[in-house]
């Protein structure tokens, strides 16, 4: 099948397709950011997308979530075409994402950050809010409880009333994931979740990602710059360089792929560099 390595287990191949990207191409004016990118994600998979800086990884996420409109190609989510939809509708269909450079609602409380992500499914209207109807009070109570449960998973419950920007960096990263989960996604796009974390935090994060995938029955697409993270948790990996796919396969195959090593370390580095990349 297109957009997947061909040696995955038949059990995985049987599952329904969640995200199918085909021939995705995007130009910033005349600069080619992404060229003929294809990938197919099946339910429950944890797939990595790696590549050197500027390879176009984040652009892919921006294309999926409607921040940019692709020059060519198609993005189908559970069979529905996403190209041309506004971002908020794409999110409401069940795709959530985090950001490489943290984009929290910095001056609002931790709890508010999560509550905002619940906005499309609040279950009451403006009139209910103005009149303080029973529906408003009950929905609001449910929303707050749900948000607090989510915060508890990420160890943020005690800080729910703190201002988001007052959290330490690692917790801000966690809050971003919690907030993304509050949109009730099926597909989670994580954009460099381990950026700026120390090795201990990275291990913790990897466990957390595994945990939420199982708990919320998610399909996860992960962009990462650090090889270590993707090697540890992803089932298979796509490698990009200069906007194009240069390799695809299981972590082990990728580690030993000369093209990948070349992309990361430059020409001529292939022979001596294997250990380093690993």
């Amino acid at each position: 099948m297109k957009g997947r390595p061909d040696n995955l287990s038949p059990e995985v191949e049987m599952r329904p397709v969640v995200l199918e990207i085909e021939g995705l191409t995007h130009y910033f004016d005349s600069l080619r950011a992404v060229h003929d990118f294809s990938v197919t994600l099946k339910e429950g998979e944890l797939v990595g997308l790696i590549g050197p800086n500027g390879a176009g990884k984040t652009t892919i996420f921006n294309l999926i979530t409607g921040v940019y409109r692709p020059t060519a190609g198609s993005i189908r989510y559970e069979g529905a075409e996403l190209v041309g939809l506004p971002s908020h509708e794409i999110i409401q269909m069940g795709i959530a994402r985090t950001f490489q450079n943290i984009r929290l609602f910095a001056n609002l409380t931790v709890l508010d950050n999560v509550l905002i992500a619940h906005h499309p499914h609040t279950g009451y209207g403006l009139l209910d809010a103005i009149l303080r109807s029973r529906r408003f009070r009950e929905s609001e109570k449910v929303l707050i409880e749900r948000s607090q449960e989510l915060l508890a998973i990420f160890g943020l419950e005690e800080r729910q009333n703190d201002i988001a920007s007052s959290l330490p960096y690692g917790l801000q990263r966690r809050l971003e994931i919690a907030r993304a989960l509050a949109t009730q996604p099926y597909l989670l796009l994580l954009d460099e979740p381990a950026a700026g974390m120390n090795p201990g935090e990275v291990i913790e994060l990897m466990e957390l990602i595994h945990f939420i995938r199982d708990k919320f029955k998610l399909t996860i697409f992960l962009v990462e710059h650090q090889m270590r993270v993707v090697m540890g948790i992803c089932e298979w990996i796509t490698v990009m360089d200069f906007g194009e796919i240069i390799a695809r396969g299981t972590p082990r195959e990728i580690q030993n792929d000369p093209k990948v090593i070349e992309a990361y370390l430059g020409k001529g580095a292939v022979v001596g560099a294997r250990a380093e990349v690993a």
Binding site: V67, L108, H119, T183
Partner: peptide, 22 residues
């Protein structure tokens, strides 16, 4: 209300608000 939070989120970070389904 939730609408108020959505209004605030636009001020805080419009792009992030949009990508949280607002």
């Amino acid at each position: 209300s939730s609408t108020g939070r959505a209004i605030l989120s636009v001020r805080e970070n419009e792009r992030a608000a949009e990508l949280m389904g607002v």
